[in-house]
């Protein structure tokens, strides 16, 4: 799987409350989550996610298990998240909703162009190739299907 986009950098310990606040959870309307994604961190950030790759510090997605956080990022058009480490529930949620998450260091700045080669397990930015932790075969299968729900549906057919 080959992914690319322009980088948006964020700090460490980005929690799911700031990705999507608890006050917006009581709905099935995904557009609500897109409209309010990162509202409490930086209200202008949501509009910059489409076609972008988030490069964050460690422990991205910590806190609440709310899957709306991963869904909001995916629906906002984010290509992938790269971070040295993720909160484990967010990590699984992201894979399950078809949002690629890449565990590794990526030395780049906001606005840089980054290329992710999930098959080879590298991130390329400014000519530098950085190895990243490979995803398990099962996780790659889920991502290729576009998420766990589409994977289940395809297996039934």
């Amino acid at each position: 799987m080959h992914l690319e986009g322009n980088v948006v950098c964020l700090g460490a310990d980005i929690d799911t409350d700031v990705i999507i606040a608890g006050r917006y959870l009581r709905t099935k309307d995904r557009q609500v989550w897109v409209e309010h994604v990162f509202e409490d961190l930086d209200p202008s950030l949501g509009a910059r996610l489409r076609g972008s790759v988030l490069v964050a510090g460690r422990n991205f997605g910590c806190g609440s298990s709310r899957e709306q956080a991963a869904v909001a990022l995916k629906e906002a058009g984010l290509i992938a998240v790269i971070a040295p480490s993720f909160s484990r529930i967010f990590f699984r949620n992201a894979i399950n909703v078809g949002l690629p998450v890449v565990e590794g260091e990526c030395h780049c700045a906001s606005g840089d162009h980054v290329v992710i080669d999930l098959d080879e397990g590298v991130v390329i930015c400014g000519g530098a190739r950085t190895p990243v932790r490979p995803l398990s075969a099962r996780m790659q299968e889920i991502l290729r299907a576009g998420g766990l729900v589409p994977l289940w549906r395809s297996k039934k057919q």
Partner: peptide, 13 residues
């Protein structure tokens, strides 16, 4: 341990 909604749906299934 905690899981997300889609993981839980797979447990239901």
């Amino acid at each position: 341990t905690g899981v997300g909604a889609t993981d839980m749906a797979a447990v239901w299934a």
